[in-house]
Nucleic acid binder design. Structure first.
Lengths: 140, 140
DNA sequence: CCATAATACTTGATTCACTCAAGCAAGCAA
DNA sequence: TTGCTTGCTTGAGTGAATCAAGTATTATGG
């Protein structure tokens, strides 16, 4: 989704700024991924592999079909960023793990995605706490 | 992008809650669109047509290639939600406008996308102002 | 006034994300 | 061992998105 996810006419200022935030965040994420020739989905998946895990677990965590994970992992594997090791106890299952090159790319992605860091960094520690509290309350 | 756009390891709580917010927002937007058998991109584009406008203007506003707009508009047109009228003065240009059915669907989409409204509604007026101010500052 | 450039959009080709339905192999349970 | 479930893959299909070309049409400079 490169197109912004927001109504043009928000019914309050808070809603409008929320929309702006989401839009800028998403674009920044995609741009950071693109710097490393990754798609958002690839960068996202790579970021979930601090520990190796099964395809099913990834699908559940990311809220999509397992066959989607199969494909994204296949592309990451083709790029040499990920391996699919056999599960030691269950021969049906595969464990996805980052390669050392995958670690490196993931590290560089985290460095490239400065938006959240920068945005939060514009606030004082007190303000950061306020923001956290407000967003938590808003999220319900 | 249905996959969440966020690093697993945020370096602060504020970052983590920001990520949560973006994730939930995006999913809610997509779900609301799906209720009306629309994609996010279609719902988004439909929402920008309170006044009719040219393809180029839409592409610029949404930050994507004009040919992408051509396709999305074509699908919306096939659904009877949008028309492509000839521009009165410039015969190269087309003006995209919602049909009455498009208006209706857009209205229903706005009603279905409750997330931002609900989230903001959990805050008192004062808190809403605080949130707005904090996010504006964070956005720079 | 005409040749040329710029504009506005469309078409075609390609990649990727995503979903669903089917399938296969391996584990599990009666 | 029969049959169900689990874990993943394959195949088919849709849609978003980009890029390169192409077609009109408008604008411009000599």
């Amino acid at each position: 989704m490169a197109l912004p996810n927001g109504p043009v006419a928000a019914s309050s200022e808070a809603e409008a700024v929320l929309f702006d935030l989401v839009d800028v965040y998403d674009r920044a994420y995609e741009a950071a991924a693109a710097e490393l020739s990754l798609t958002s989905a690839q960068a996202c998946l790579l970021g979930r592999l601090d520990e190796r895990r099964g395809m099913g677990a990834l699908a559940e965590e990311l809220g999509c079909d397992a066959s989607n994970i199969t494909q994204i992992v296949a592309r990451l594997e083709a790029l040499g960023l990920v391996t699919r090791e056999p599960h030691p106890r269950d021969r049906r299952a595969r464990l996805v793990a980052r390669t050392s090159r995958g670690d490196e790319i993931n590290r560089r992605f985290a460095a490239a995605f400065t938006f959240a860091r920068t945005a939060v960094g514009r606030l004082s520690p007190d303000e950061q706490d306020q923001l956290t509290a407000l967003l938590r309350k808003a999220l319900g």
